[in-house]
Design a protein around this nucleic acid. Structure first.
Lengths: 239, 239
DNA sequence: GCGCCTCTTTGCGCCCGCGCAAACTGCCCG
DNA sequence: CGGGCAGTTTGCGCGGGCGCAAAGAGGCGC
């Protein structure tokens, strides 16, 4: 976690500051701090007082919530350009989950006080934050419905499609999820066990829909996954 | 849905406008409209363009999301003083769920444009909204973890406790949830079936923990429910 | 290059909770 | 007052997916 001088240009990529003029952006930069986080490190922990708003510049961060009995759930993965920990700062003041770097990261952060000042001076920032948090709320609500009403296979399909959209990299013959993702991780995203995930992926692999590796998944036939996720009439594999 | 002249005083109870001075509150009132909604009516529907921010003054509103195959999930119940539909207005522009009045209601609303102007002029409003939406995000994330990792019985216990906290009315010998709530509704809140909910409530009723009726639940021994929800060593019923 | 360690795969048996079906009950409305 | 209907209860059987257990397979450090 080395503090560095922040680069003004990186803010252009953040939706939080969309619509600000150059002067406001400069002001924003002055109140920010950059940090490097190496793979495996913790950025904040569940239960810590939420004193910092974070934005990820580069790398990948996993947000994990732990229940009373130690059961874990992957809330989401954060990619470059996304905020994290922001909602906690303005709601409750305690981080509701852990943030772990799953790759070497560059992140930028503001103190709660500094962000408060920014928002009061530039309502656009607050409104952008509302937009971001609102979309996230909708996404989580949709996942809640999925977990509540859909079968495991479909939930896994949805999770992979979501990951591909968010963190997919085109490779020959498919889309690869470009950060280390274990079966256990997928299980914790979909509310099942790593055994079940492994079985499902094995089945899909036999049908040529995905290709798995160690902490790695490549989607070979995305439309087939969509068919599973949406329960469209399934294109039968050549019997 | 009769439009009425809004009453300035009702805004005092809304967290969205906490911290505003009298002049700002007056301005807020001018851009608002009040409506009466009778039990059973729909306030907005999933998929509709989100043109209005709502606040409930009196009554009870059920927010229900419907999946592709018609599976329904109760996202939350809204009580007096709470906002609804706000996140959608600033994120995506489409309501992600239906809002149904489960009792006769009085609600107040602002157009998206008017609310945008209010937020730009009074950043506190935007920040309050961020607080509200952020808390709701945290709550839904917690429910997501629950549904993903906990057994049905515990989820039902959590749901009842949450309802009691939000909409409980003390009566002799317990806490009654003060709006019509069917077994089906509880099932849709917890991701199970009405049969399973009915069995669980019957079991609890036999132990004197709850008392059920038609679309009605009274919690007789809240601490026993907490014990189930948290998996504390269970106070055995007299064998 | 060898061995270890983590991640993954796969088999097997069981149980929670769903699906179906039918009976029951209290309200509402005619 | 009597039917009908929505909501609820309960029985029964099955099956998806979990739990446990053990073997296989890469990758990494030494």
């Amino acid at each position: 976690m080395t503090p560095l001088a922040p680069d003004p240009d990186v803010l252009r990529g953040l939706r939080l500051f969309a619509g600000l003029d150059a002067a406001a952006l400069a002001e924003t930069v002055r109140s920010a701090q950059t940090q490097r986080v190496e793979k495996g490190a913790t950025i904040f922990s569940q239960g810590d007082p939420a004193t910092l708003c974070h934005a990820l510049i580069d790398g990948r961060v996993k947000i994990v919530q732990t229940g009373a009995d130690g059961q874990q759930m992957v809330v989401r993965y954060i990619g470059p350009g996304e905020m994290f920990g922001t909602a906690a700062v303005f709601a409750g003041g305690v981080y509701p989950a852990d943030a772990l770097a799953v790759a070497d990261c560059v992140a930028i952060h503001w103190s709660a006080a500094a962000m408060g000042v920014l928002m009061e001076r530039h309502p656009r920032v607050a409104m952008n934050a509302l937009d971001i948090v609102g979309r996230r709320l909708q996404e989580v609500q949709t996942r809640l419905r999925e977990v509540s009403t859909e079968r495991v296979e479909r939930r896994v399909a949805h999770a992979l499609l979501r990951l591909a959209r968010q963190a997919g990299r085109r490779v020959e013959g498919g889309v690869e999820i470009d950060f280390p993702l274990s079966r256990q991780d997928i299980a914790e995203m979909t509310g099942t066990t790593l055994h079940t995930v492994s079985r499902i992926l094995s089945g899909w692999e036999a049908q040529g829909i995905v290709e798995g590796g160690r902490q790695q998944v490549t989607i070979r036939r995305p439309h087939a996954l969509v068919a599973i996720a949406e329960d469209l009439p399934r294109p039968l594999p050549p019997a």
